[in-house]
Design a binder for these strands. Structure first.
Lengths: 244, 244
DNA sequence: TTGCACATTGAACGCTTGTATTGCACGATG
DNA sequence: CATCGTGCAATACAAGCGTTCAATGTGCAA
């Protein structure tokens, strides 16, 4: 796990080594799960030095956020300048470093404000593309472009956030050159083929539209629903596949 | 936040109240972020009672896992029995309680073994459907059905895991009756329409296939890549949209 | 060489954590 | 009535946490 600090790490300043170690520890254990002592150990420095360079754990986390966002910004601009052929919503994130992507994956579920901004920017970017089209991309056929873009981003980022589970199922981490192509090809298949026949599709749409009409407003209304209080549900029954 | 323990909670045994509170706290703060004292406070009991009923924090977490999986199993069987028209990979999870879904979302990124099993079972379920088809569902056109199913599940679960960001973008939590239809409709749009024209699609496929051929084996090979050591990347530049 | 600023360490402090223990009220059982 | 198991609270404790601080090493300017 934390074995590969050797050759290349010698070249980095202690501050950079701490930041890199924090990237890994935050990504692996979450913000509250990671400890300053653990980060210091991973970086090969004393806990005091972490404090000296970053002031506090929260400040260290903010520094990680800013660094990661800067790296992503740079990568994106390079990609836009180079004009990659693949559409914007499909992660060209391959060239992004593993640790950066893993950090983003954690930050997205760990309540990072920077990650939230990143997500929202991606939604805006995607919305622009699907509204105006782009080279090879037709404008999307939808009457709710914002939701279209948001859900598309959620699905794309979702594959990053759940990369651990994709790794287990695919045999290689999709955030890695060895695993990415297989995931991306499958994603293209999914986006391409028409799984549902028109009848079922229309039926599903109608049901959802009706549900939407009957549901309360658009703002959040039912702040919490009770969970079924069947305590007896705790008996065991393992042999069947409980798939969503 | 933790305001809605009132009427209905009086009816539950203390053990059930603790479990429900743990569901919420674990989901909100993660396993290491949640504290036994916090859970006890949310449940309106003393910390000692949590210990008395569940033995340890880890055991409490396992109990939550088992409870949630049992609820999901029940819900799924009811759904199968009732024969919902919507396809299996689209969350009919609407009927599932909010707290259960939020807990699963956290568990999927928090290293829960039970959540991993849930994911894998969902992949197997989906793979069966896309291989054999189902009422209204044609078998999927792909030469990698396993990856197809895995990525599809990742995208579906991804929308659950990132529900916080969808909430912010859509104005209502998609795990809620008020927010679900809009998300589901957008998902149908995405799955339906052909965003990329055939030329670009073929081009992307070819590029990915080539990348796959040139990449090392199928097992993970490049365990870590260095991150760009541009420390100067930390300067500020906010006005451009860093999407993705 | 002297001096100063900075990098780095290691010990220490106060606090929160998970857990163990003790004690008490109370309803069922004999 | 005695007693015992159980639900529950209160307290205690060791470990680990984030943070502070004084001391030491190190390289550059004067």
């Amino acid at each position: 796990m934390a074995v590969n600090e050797s050759r290349a790490d010698e070249d980095l300043t202690a501050r950079a080594r701490i930041r890199d170690a924090a990237l890994r520890e935050f990504a692996e254990h979450g913000v509250s799960g990671a400890t300053i002592r653990g980060i210091a150990r991973a970086a090969g420095v004393s806990p005091g030095l972490v404090q000296h360079h970053f002031g506090s754990k929260e400040a260290l986390r903010r520094a990680c956020d800013e660094y990661v966002m800067a790296v992503i910004r740079e990568t994106k601009q390079e990609a836009l300048k180079g004009g990659v052929a693949t559409p914007g919503f499909l992660p060209g994130a391959l060239t992004l470093a593993l640790s950066v992507q893993r950090y983003v994956a954690r930050a997205l579920v760990d309540g990072s404000e920077a990650a939230a901004r990143l997500f929202d920017d991606a939604v805006a970017f995607t919305e622009d593309i699907i509204a105006n089209g782009a080279e090879g991309l037709a404008p999307a056929e939808t009457d709710d472009p914002h939701a279209y873009a948001a859900v598309m981003c959620a699905m794309a980022f979702g594959s990053v956030v759940l990369h651990e589970h994709l790794t287990r199922n695919l045999g290689a981490d999709p955030l890695t050159p060895a695993g990415y192509p297989r995931m991306a090809l499958a994603m293209l298949d999914i986006l391409t083929d028409d799984l549902m026949d028109p009848g079922l599709m229309a039926q599903a749409r109608a049901a959802l539209a009706e549900l939407r009409a009957s549901a309360p407003g658009e703002a959040e209304s039912d702040p919490d629903q009770r969970i079924p209080t069947s305590d007896a549900a705790a008996r065991e029954a393992d042999s069947d596949p409980p798939a969503r």
